[in-house]
């Protein structure tokens, strides 16, 4: 839940040697299923990333902090939801295709069955004023939750002007100019990657603490 990444227990003193981390071997499919079922059952209101980190990095030690963020960036950059993409990517890293399938199933089973049950009940109570008032409160709470999660994830980037400029350009295009997502991704994406292109004399070390 906390924004600053805590040290990873059991990941050895590998602060400046990320390659010291290795994907765990022989993780059982059942353990993958149960872990993602738990995340799928307790992660509420869009804060899935925090639960993923708590379970996968801190509790299970299946990923170290760097590999977690790497998987998260793939999950966020590609189409699909962060939570389900993460389940597919992490499941695949641990146990291949079967790992992906059980992780995805675990992640979506609790919420999917509950929302369907609620949806069936809602269809019968759509004009109940108590239901509607509660849903207005839930929607407002969701806005606060999403703001906090966005700030937690973007926190370390706000210290660097280039990052702030890319964030601002994205928000301007999507939220205020209402430019289609496809065009935003096809323009801002390549420009941002080019701005962070590899430089001569930069061996890839040390820029992780840019903020």
């Amino acid at each position: 839940m906390s924004p600053p990444p805590p040290p990873v227990p059991g990941a050895a003193p590998a602060a400046e040697a990320p390659s010291a981390y290795a994907v765990p071997q022989d993780v059982r499919l059942w353990d993958i299923f149960v872990t993602f079922l738990f995340i799928g059952a307790v992660s509420f209101g869009g804060g899935v990333v925090a639960y993923l980190r708590a379970s996968l990095v801190l509790k299970r030690g299946w990923l170290d902090e760097e590999h977690f963020l790497s998987a998260l960036e793939i999950a966020q950059a590609l189409p699909g939801l962060n939570a389900t993409n993460m389940s597919i990517i992490v499941g695949d890293r641990l146990r291949g295709v079967a790992g992906s399938i059980v992780a995805f199933t675990g992640m979506t089973l609790p919420g999917g069955s509950m929302v369907l049950a609620l949806g069936v009940a809602y269809a019968a109570n759509a004009h109940n004023p108590y239901v509607n008032a509660a849903l207005v409160g839930v929607g407002a709470a969701a806005v606060g939750m999403l703001s906090a999660v966005t700030l937690q994830i973007g926190h370390k980037q706000l210290g660097q002007m280039l990052n702030v400029a890319i964030i601002a350009a994205t928000v301007l295009m999507v939220s205020f100019l209402h430019i289609s997502l496809v065009w935003v991704l096809l323009t801002v994406g390549p420009v941002a990657v080019f701005l962070f292109r590899p430089r001569k004399g930069d061996s890839g070390e040390g820029e992780g603490e840019a903020s």
Partner: peptide, 21 residues
């Protein structure tokens, strides 16, 4: 470079999602 460039783009999209909701 891809990771570093896409990270702020994703934060921007999350902020936009928050605004739309």
């Amino acid at each position: 470079s891809l990771q570093q460039g896409l990270a702020p783009l994703v934060v921007g999209l999350m902020a936009s999602g928050t605004i739309s909701i």
